[in-house]
Amino acid sequence: MIKLEYTEKKGLVQKPGAGVDLTLGGSTGQHEMTTTFKVIHATSSLDPQDTTHIITFPEGVVLPANSLILASKLEMLVPDADETNITALGISANDTLMLDGELSASSDEVVLLPPTALEFVGSESFDSVLLTTDDNPHEEAMIKITICYMQLQ
């Protein structure tokens, strides 16, 4: 795995890791800012007893504060056996950042989702996303969500 870093002092450097960091501003470090492009993903079964489902990122992975979601991918690894629809996808119950409309959970298509609005996540980091369905899904349904974001720091 190779990480790409750019700083005004060192130029373009490749090192072990992953992701792209573009650090701009004075090389003295007094007024640098870094734009980071990253992708995170989470895989989870859907709760057959509920219509809200918490999809938790792997341990140590978060959607950081001050991030701008650029797009998401949603894939049913095990499609729902019932005709359940996904109706909302966001980082909290009140924030459907990633889905405007509804998607069938019984399809195994990979769906590319534009953000409903390009807004920064805010001052809080999130270790999960919240998915809502219009009915209780089948117990075997399993979903994967991938999120591409840009972080400013």
């Binding site: 992708v39 991918k73 991938t146 591409c148």
Partner: peptide, 11 residues
């Protein structure tokens, strides 16, 4: 292109 190619979650 970010995300692990081995785990098929690239974007």
């Amino acid at each position: 292109t970010l995300g692990s190619s081995s785990e098929a979650h690239e974007m």
